[in-house]
Amino acid sequence: MTTRIIFAGFGGQGVMLMGQILSLAGMLEGKHVTWMPSYGPEMRGGTANCTVVMSDEEVASPVTEKAEVVVAMNIPSLLKFQDDVIPNGFLFINQSVIDRDSNRTDINVIKVPCNEIADELGNLKVSNMAMLGAVVGGTDIVSTDNLFKALEKKLGSKASMIEINKQAVMKGYELAKASLVK
């Protein structure tokens, strides 16, 4: 099975980092994985994005038109990428920044109040981790165990931040699980 995930948002929203941590978690899970930063015309228009391809087999194309999962951290990203989600795929919307709904009805849409979750935890910087938790909660693409291991590896030098990042992940994770049950 191959899963393609597009993370998109403003520069500074931690979009690249989300993709890298998920890739690392995928690797720890024993999967093949490729992380690719925005390229070509994708770079225009003030959105930063990256694509993660995770697979049981060697990853062929790192480039894709369609994705099983799209994560939109801001409005331009929603408008640009919502149509790329395959039917029955997942669209994660950063509700704190995006004040509108998706035009798609054939996919799973999960709204995550990233900033509010982060604010509640006392550090706005972890809002991307709330979203990453939601992605994992919604798709079960990797285990939380491996996600935490990846988080620790990536944030190694900022050990003090690990706990609050994990909390943000869990909040997002539970929220996604709950919204799928509905």
Binding site: S23, M27, T34, W35, M36, P37, Y39, V59
Partner: peptide, 10 residues
């Protein structure tokens, strides 16, 4: 090329 240069893989 720029793809090989910029991607991350294990």
């Amino acid at each position: 090329d720029g793809v090989i240069g910029q991607i991350m893989e294990p």
